[in-house]
Design a protein around this nucleic acid. Structure first.
Lengths: 135, 135
DNA sequence: GTATCTGCAAAACATTTGCAATTCT
DNA sequence: AGAATTGCAAATGTTTTGCAGATAC
C-alpha cells in the first residue's frame, strides 16, 4: 500500500533518518492499523528480518514517539500499543478477543472550572466491552 | 471523615468481608482521592501498620476491583492507579509534577457505524499536559 | 478445625540501560 | 575515521504466583 519511497519521505519530513528497520517498522504500523504492541511488531517483522532485535523495535518506537510519527495507546497495564494515526480518536478494546478498534469521537469540552488554567497537550479516550463478534 | 463502621458497611454491601487491612485500604482510598498507586498505598499505610505486606495490597485491590469497590485508572505504563470513585469521570495527569486531577465529563455514546452492535462496559478519558501550578 | 486471609520469596513480564559491535557516509 | 545505528545481556520495576503460616469463625 505504501511504497518505500513514501515512508522514506515521511521519516525525512519528521527529521528522522530512514534506516531500513525504521522504514519497515513504520510501514508495518501504517499498513496494519492493529495498534500493535512491541512484541507483535517484533514477532511479525522477525519473519522477514530474522536479525532484527527487540531492542531495535523499542529504540525505533522511542524515536517515532519523540518525533510525533506514532502515538502511544495505553489502555491497560503491561501492553503499550502504538498507532501510526496520531490524530485524536477513540479506541475500543474488546475484553474477550483483545482486539482494539478505532472510533471517531468529538471530545467534549470539559467543565472549565476544574481544569482552569491547565494546559492540555493530549486527549485520550477509550472504551471497553465486547465487540460485535464476541457478544 | 469515614468511620470504620461506614467502611465495614460498604464492604459488606459489596459482599466482601471486612478484614482490618481491607478496611484500612478502602478508608485510605476514600479519604485520599489521589489516585494512588500500589506503592503509594503501601508506603503510606506502612507507617501505621508495619506488618502489612505489599502482596496484601495487591490482593486486596484485586478483590476491590472484582467487586466494583474501586476502579483501575490506566494513564501510562508502569503505574496502575486506583480510584474509590467508580463513576465515569475524566482524569488529567500533569506531565511535570505527576499529579492526577479529576474532572467532570459526559462521555458521548458512540453514534457511528464503527462500533455498531458493540457492548460498552467502561468508558475512560484522560488528558495530559501541565497543571496550573506547573505551567 | 476448617475457611479465609496474609506474607514471603521466587517467578514472570515488559521495558530500560550500558556498552560493544556493526554499519553508513 | 567518525557518527549513527543496532544488538546483546544485564538491570530495573511492577505485578503475579505458589505455598506456608497465621488468623478468624
Amino acid at each position: 500500500m505504501y511504497t518505500v519511497e513514501d515512508i522514506k519521505q515521511r521519516l525525512q519530513d519528521k527529521g528522522v533518518s530512514p534506516s531500513n528497520y525504521r522504514i519497515k517498522i513504520l510501514k508495518y504500523l501504517l499498513e496494519n492499523k492493529n495498534h500493535a504492541t512491541v512484541d507483535k511488531i517484533y514477532t511479525d517483522l522477525k519473519a522477514d528480518m530474522p536479525t532484527m532485535s527487540k531492542t531495535t523495535v523499542y529504540n525505533t518506537l522511542e524515536i517515532f514517539i519523540h518525533n510525533n510519527i506514532v502515538q502511544v495507546i495505553t489502555i491497560e497495564e503491561g501492553e503499550t500499543r502504538y498507532d501510526a494515526d496520531t490524530s485524536t480518536h477513540g479506541h475500543f478494546k474488546c475484553t474477550v478477543c483483545g482486539e482494539v478498534y478505532d472510533f471517531d469521537v468529538t471530545l467534549p469540552n470539559i467543565d472549565t472550572e476544574s481544569l482552569k488554567d491547565f494546559e492540555i497537550e493530549e486527549k485520550h479516550i477509550y472504551y471497553k466491552g465486547r465487540c460485535n463478534k464476541c457478544k
